[in-house]
Design a binder for these strands. Structure first.
Length: 877
RNA sequence: GGACUCAUAGCUCAGCUGGUUAGAGCGCUACGUUGACAUCGUAGAGGUCGGCGGUUCGACUCCGUCUGAGUCCA
């Protein structure tokens, strides 16, 4: 074995081994409890980023853990067609060739996108491989594949038939750059420094003006009314009168509506029903005409008087100038306001009157709320995200699901060119059911990508068919995703699942934070601060990256990516490697059948087995409660601080000695502990653990399907812990003193240890070999009646006192100072504990166990205090 | 405006349902190539857990409030 762990070799070897032996494939074994996760399908737009790496690592940890525990574990992979994003990318490549999608036509263009999809799907699978994900590729799905498309149609038609999908002319969020409608949550609001323009609209009867204010003056071209509050005394007499719209010359009414805020601006507002959601509603109430003044690209249209053809922002400048010249615009104020931007293109979103398809959310939301509140709800981890979800679903508005794109699920609605009938159908139709005309045209729009993602947990398992997979694996157990898509995805999966499967789609939702850059900034293409997970794996190995990501955060919180942390994880892997290497070098010819940890155990053997047992308990408990950061710490400390720093060091004694029985015991313990430790590490670090496990004496073909360790009561041994702690205390004290007076370990010293009592004495006696090994004494005397030498360094540990008569090396004054510092600390501890114990409230109310602990501490501190005090006296005397 | 998160060692962060001598990694100091590992070992320095108030026998942990940083929603 090489002295360093080589990730690349292990990774190249084990992934194909696992995959090709079918270990990733769920059995659909009715005798086993299923454990199901469906992967959040990455977009086929490009490479996976470090956020995917985090998200996927956590899922792989769960699945590997459950698989080892004997569950029928399924982790179902798949990808998302990502409508706008993918179409935009492909259009981008076309642009480089100087053509547009319109040059190609719909069919050809969609073919191009499929080619793109195939290419990126391959890249993504390669990246999953590199990360070591145990995905069941036999069940891989794509949101646009045949089965899922069928599910989408089924859902669409059923909702339509239930009256929960409708088509209508409403104000929606329009992205003039990608020329499509957006849903509410695809709009990002940003505070922008703009202006409030104050206008005076003249009354038709020539008796004066009415003042209105707007942040978008170009929309005045589409004004069809001015509204005031019905109880506003200032305008009481004006309601019902007519104003003449400047520039356009249109005569428009002054109407009264409750919506108007009397406090804002002049208390009168211009109404543009085709370009503002609130104005739209007022317009409906007052039967106002809806006049669109822009086209789909954000340019002014034929209704825009002389501004036709101008871009909306250019028009704004010109119209401001013109209105100023006419004296209509009399004041411009600076004004901070929130402006919607397209989440995809970044364009300023235009509220735009348009015919679109919508999902009526009321009944669906109601059911979701009811389910969540009835304790049958989805468990959010951490639970604070439940509130965020509930707040959204309680205030949700109808969902605009049509998109003016070509890449996606085309809306299954056909219009008869002859009789005008619209037909919604599961199957493609070629004849109008009303007039039998063959002159049909399918709706041009496609569905919002999230419409298909919303069905992901069950559509991937075969729904709407009652497949065996659906019966066995649904509902799923855990969904892992970021807080940024709770509304987009999590919420929508929940209400669609309830509607169509009568069950929640998953038991738990584990919410992760974002992986930010080292400075805490969001990773983004424009900043160029993204970290490529493949780069991390290339440099440090997949296991190091996985360990770092999984243990670097608490659920729901962001984490910063720091290379030092990857390096630390890599060093940990190397530590594991070398500990195993040591064991294996001393295990020549030792077989699995030779392992016997039932007899002849020494203190350290019992101790490490006890500690392993505790680690098994902790790891299992923490994995079950999604506390991966804590698991990481538990395993790191066990391996590094206990197994490597102590057990292996101690094990060298028998291994390099010639007591064959002791040697066999030590080998057994090492083999056993390492075997179990590799199992515990496997979900986090699958490659190195498998590599080592295969070298170790083992039973079975692969660690990936080895059984998960279980705590064994017979390995508990608190006595051994006490003994080991005494010995470690002694050894640490001696090392400390050696460092203090600069006596290297190689130099022999005299060591006298005075045990408090017979019990401590027996502990020390049975650990004498350890003390000799680590303290390198020339003379070692242990007893209950050891006399303190006159000139010596000393230390107290719980249960014993030690002296190092280091002739000639001791500066008495310095030693007194050192002990006095120690005494000072002990005094304060004694004071603290005694204060607590003399507090009546504490003794009366605290649990007995806590009081017991405090009493034990008091005794220990008092003992040490007395000894240190006495020692100082001796030295002074 | 509403909701939430964060504030703990020089830096980045843990600390689960209140009882620990408040931890880790990196960095820092001194020493060290003893037959797993310098991607290492040994020892050490470094924190009044953001401020104030409250609940409690007991608060880093619970509640209120203020300050600062950030996120989501309107």
């Amino acid at each position: 074995m090489p002295t360093k762990y080589e990730p690349k070799q292990a990774e190249a070897k084990w992934y194909p081994f696992w995959r090709d032996n079918g270990y990733f494939k769920a059995e659909r074994n009715k005798g086993k409890t299923p454990f199901t996760i469906v992967i959040p399908p990455p977009n086929v737009t490009g490479n996976l980023h470090i956020g995917h790496a985090l998200n996927n690592t956590l899922q792989d940890i769960m699945v590997r853990f459950k698989r080892m525990q004997g569950y029928d574990a399924l982790w179902l992979p798949g990808m998302d067609h990502a409508g706008i994003a993918t179409q935009a990318r492909v259009e981008g490549t076309l642009r480089e060739e100087g053509i547009t999608r319109h040059d190609l036509g719909r069919e050809k263009f969609v073919e191009k996108v499929w080619e793109w999809k195939e290419r990126y799907a391959g890249i993504i699978r390669e990246q999953w491989t590199k990360m070591g994900l145990s995905l069941d590729y036999s069940r891989e799905r794509f949101t646009l594949d045949e089965g899922l498309s069928r599910a989408v149609r089924e859902v669409f038609v059923r909702l339509y038939e239930k009256g929960l999908i409708y088509r209508g002319k409403y104000i929606i969020n329009w992205d003039p750059v990608t020329r499509t409608a957006l849903s509410d949550i695809e709009v990002e609001y940003k505070d922008v420094q703009g202006a409030l323009y104050h206008l005076r609209y003249p009354l038709k009867d020539g008796t004066g003006y009415i003042e209105v204010a707007t942040t978008r003056p170009e929309t005045m071209l589409g004004d069809t009314a001015v509204a005031v509050h019905p109880e506003d005394e200032r305008y009481k007499d004006l309601v019902g009168k007519t104003v003449v719209l400047p520039i356009v010359g249109r005569e428009i009414p002054i109407v009264a509506d409750d919506y108007v805020d009397r406090e804002f601006g002049s208390g009168a507002v211009k109404i543009t029903p085709a370009h503002d959601p609130n104005d739209f509603e007022i317009g409906q109430r007052h039967n106002l005409p809806q006049i669109l003044v822009m086209d789909e690209g954000g340019k002014m249209n034929e209704n825009a008087a002389g501004y036709q053809g101008q871009d909306r922002f250019e028009c704004r400048k010109n119209i401001v100038r013109d209105l100023q010249e006419q004296g209509v615009l009399f004041k411009i104020e600076e004004h901070m306001h929130s402006v919607g931007h397209s989440e995809r293109s970044g364009a300023v979103v235009e509220p735009y009157l348009s015919t679109q398809w919508f999902v009526k959310m009321g009944p669906l939301a109601e059911r979701a709320i009811e389910a969540q509140k009835s304790r049958e709800g989805v468990q959010f981890v951490p639970d604070r995200f439940e509130k965020i979800y509930l707040h959204w679903i309680e205030n949700v508005r109808d969902w605009c699901i049509s998109r003016q794109l070509w890449w996606g699920h085309r809306i299954p609605a056909w219009y008869c060119e002859d009789c005008g009938e619209m037909t919604v159908s599961r199957e493609d139709i070629h004849e109008c059911p009303k007039c039998a005309s063959q002159n049909l045209k399918q709706d041009n729009d496609v569905l919002d990508t999230w419409f298909s993602s919303a069905l992901w947990p069950f559509s991937t398992l075969g729904w709407p068919d009652e497949t065996e997979d659906m019966k066995h694996f649904y509902p799923t157990d855990v969904l892992v995703t970021g807080y940024d898509i709770i509304y987009f995805w999590v919420a929508r999966m929940i209400f669609t699942a309830l509607e169509f499967t009568d069950q929640k789609p998953f038991e738990h939702v584990l919410i992760t934070g974002l992986v930010r850059d080292a400075e805490g900034r969001k990773m983004s293409k424009s900043l160029g601060n993204g970290v490529d997970p493949m780069e991390v794996i290339e440099q440090y190995g997949a296991d190091a990256m996985r360990f770092m990501l999984a243990t670097g955060c608490t659920p729901g919180n962001d984490q910063r990516f720091r290379w030092e942390r990857v390096e630390a994880a890599r060093n940990f892997a190397n530590k594991i490697w070398n500990a195993s290497r040591f064991a294996l070098m001393n295990m020549e010819g030792f077989r699995y059948e030779d392992i016997d940890i039932s007899q002849n155990l020494g203190i350290a053997d019992k101790w490490i087995l006890h500690r392993l047992n505790e680690t098994v308990k902790d790891t299992t408990r923490l994995l079950d409660s999604f506390e991966y950061g804590e698991v990481g710490r538990v395993l790191y400390n066990f391996v590094w601080d206990e197994l490597c720093d102590w057990y292996i060091e101690v094990a060298k004694l028998p291994l390099y000695g010639d007591d064959e029985a002791a040697k066999k015991t030590t080998r057994s313990v090492l083999a056993y502990v390492l075997d179990q430790t590799m199992r515990l590490l496997h979900p986090f670090m699958p490659f190195i653990s498998e590599e080592i496990w295969q070298h170790l004496p083992h039973e079975g073909d692969s660690l990936i399907v080895a059984s998960w360790p279980e705590a064994k009561p017979e390995l508990e041994n608190t006595e051994a812990v006490k003994q080991m702690e005494l010995l470690m205390g002694v050894i640490r004290s001696v090392r400390n003193i050696r460092a203090e007076v600069n006596v290297p370990i190689a130099k022999k010293i005299e060591l006298r240890i005075k045990a408090n009592d017979e019990e401590m004495l027996s502990y020390l006696e049975s650990g004498k070999a350890y003390i000799e090994r680590f303290c390198n004494p020339e003379v070692l005397s242990i007893g209950t009646d050891i006399a303190a030498p006159e000139k010596a360094m000393s230390a107290v540990v719980s249960g014993a006192e030690l002296y190092l008569p280091l002739a000639g090396l001791i500066d008495i004054e310095q030693e007194i100072a050192r002990l006095e510092k120690e005494l000072k600390w002990l005094n304060s501890e004694v004071e603290r504990v005694q204060k607590k114990l003399s507090n009546k409230g504490f003794v009366e109310k605290a649990p007995a166990q806590v009081i017991e602990q405090e009493r034990a501490k008091e005794a220990d501190y008092l003992d040490k205090q007395a000894k240190v005090k006495a020692r100082i006296q001796e030295l002074k005397g």
